[in-house]
Design a protein around this nucleic acid. Structure first.
Lengths: 134, 134
DNA sequence: ATCGTTGCAAAATATTTGCAGTTGA
DNA sequence: TCAACTGCAAATATTTTGCAACGAT
C-alpha cells in the first residue's frame, strides 16, 4: 500500500481541506461530521483510512493528547508546540520559536536518534482564565 | 469522588507498586496482567479506576503516545522527557536536564497559564539502530 | 481495464459504568 | 457501621477490516 499510485479522490481532498481549514485540531469523528456537509455519503472508515494516508505522506500530523483518548489531527506539519487546556480540553498552536528543540532533530540523545518531537504544554487557557473570573 | 476519604486497598497498592517497578510505561492492560500474578481476581475495570485515582492524586502521569492508541502510565511524576521509538514502540525516560522547559512551568505563554509539560521525542532507539545493522 | 478507493457493516480494541456484594477505617 | 471500593458483565467509545461495488487515471 505504501508505494502505490495514490488517487486524488474527492473524499481525500475534503479530509485534507478540513484539516487545513480547522485550527481546532479535530478528531476523526469531527472531521467526519464536517465533511458530511459536502459529501453526505462519506463513511467514518474512509476518514480514518485517509487520515492514515495523509500521515504517511507527511500531509498531516497525529497529535498525542494528554487528556482523553481520541487522537487529534493537525494539517500544519512544521514542528510546533501545542497547548492543551485541562479545563476545556481545547488544543492551541503556540507560535513562539523553540530553537533548542528544533536543534535536537537529527541529533542523538542517550543513544536514541531523534527524528521529531512533540511538545505539549498544559494548564489553563486564556479563555478559561477569563471565564473563571466571572 | 474527588474530596472523599480514600482507602488504601490492596488493589490500589499493587497498581501503584507495579507502576513504580516498571520502566516500561505500561498500559492499563499490561498492569492488569502483572498484578494478576499476585491478585488473581482483580478486574481490568478496577485497574482503570485506580489509575484514574492515582492520576487525580498526583501519584502517576498519563503519557500521550504518538504511536498507537492505548494510554500509557508512568509512576515517575517529576516532569521529564520521553523518547518513543517508531520502530518498536517502546518509550524510554531521558535523564538529561531541560532547564528551559522547567522554567516554563508557572509562566504564561500567549495568554495561557502553563502548569506542566510533556516533551515526547521520537525516532529510532538504540536497540533498533543496532539490530538494523545485523 | 486496472487497481486504488469507497460505503457499509461487522469486528477488534480500549475504556467506562451499573450494580450488588465486600472491605478498610 | 458505612461509604469507598470491588468483581463482573454490559455498555460505550474508538479504530480497523472484509468485501463487493465504484471510479480516477
Amino acid at each position: 500500500m505504501a508505494g502505490c499510485q495514490r488517487r486524488n479522490t474527492r473524499q481525500r481532498q475534503m479530509v485534507l481541506q478540513e484539516l487545513r481549514a480547522s485550527y481546532a485540531h479535530p478528531t476523526a469523528g469531527e472531521i467526519y461530521q464536517s465533511v458530511r456537509d459536502r459529501l453526505p455519503n462519506i463513511s467514518l472508515g474512509t476518514v480514518y483510512r485517509n487520515l492514515d494516508i495523509l500521515l504517511e505522506t507527511g500531509q498531516a500530523i497525529r497529535l498525542a493528547s494528554i487528556l482523553g483518548q481520541e487522537a487529534r489531527y493537525d494539517g500544519r506539519c512544521e514542528p510546533h508546540v501545542h497547548f492543551q487546556c485541562h479545563e476545556c480540553g481545547r488544543i492551541y498552536d503556540l507560535n513562539s520559536a523553540w530553537p533548542a528543540l528544533d536543534d535536537l532533530v537529527g541529533k542523538t540523545l542517550e543513544g536514541h536518534a531523534i527524528a521529531a518531537f512533540q511538545l505539549l504544554l498544559h494548564g489553563t487557557c486564556l479563555e478559561c482564565t477569563s471565564s473563571n473570573h466571572d
